[in-house]
Simulated scan of single mutants.
Amino acid sequence: MRIRSDGLAARSFDAETVVLDLEKSQYLTLNETGSLLYELLRQERTMDELVDAVVAEYNVDRVIAMRDVEAFVGSLREHGLLTGSDVLA
């Protein structure tokens, strides 16, 4: 899965990122963890790769990281920002 390549604009401010969906005229504000995941998703990634990155960056339990990544990916999917499969690999 990855962030769709058309109709999005993103700006980072300190540890946050604001993503504007130009097609829907909606925006999302991402915290530090969301910003990390958004940046990673600019290229094709698996759920496992995203979870590994969160565990490595924040030294959190893998189960907690998995839950948080699944919630974040679900939110991106609901907003129509992702393409590809989010099946665990």
Rank of each mutant, 00 (worst) to 15 (best):
G7C: 03
G7L: 05
G7T: 02
A10I: 04
R11D: 13
R11N: 14
S12C: 11
F13T: 07
E16Q: 14
E16W: 13
V18P: 07
V19M: 08
V19C: 07
V19I: 14
L20D: 06
L20M: 13
L22K: 12
L22F: 14
E23D: 15
K24V: 01
K24M: 03
S25C: 10
Q26G: 03
T29A: 12
E32N: 00
T33W: 10
G34C: 06
L36V: 01
L37H: 05
L37S: 08
L37C: 11
L37M: 13
E39A: 07
L40G: 02
L40C: 11
L41H: 06
L41P: 02
Q43N: 11
E49I: 04
E49Q: 11
E49A: 12
L50R: 02
L50G: 10
D52I: 01
D52S: 03
A53Y: 08
V54L: 15
V54G: 13
V55S: 06
V55T: 05
E57K: 08
E57T: 08
Y58C: 15
V60M: 10
V60N: 00
R67L: 15
R67N: 12
D68T: 01
E70W: 04
A71H: 04
V73N: 00
G74K: 02
L76D: 03
L76T: 00
R77T: 07
E78H: 07
H79R: 03
G80S: 14
G80Q: 11
L82Y: 03
G84A: 08
G84S: 10
S85P: 00
V87F: 10
V87E: 13
V87S: 08
V87C: 07
V87R: 06
L88R: 09
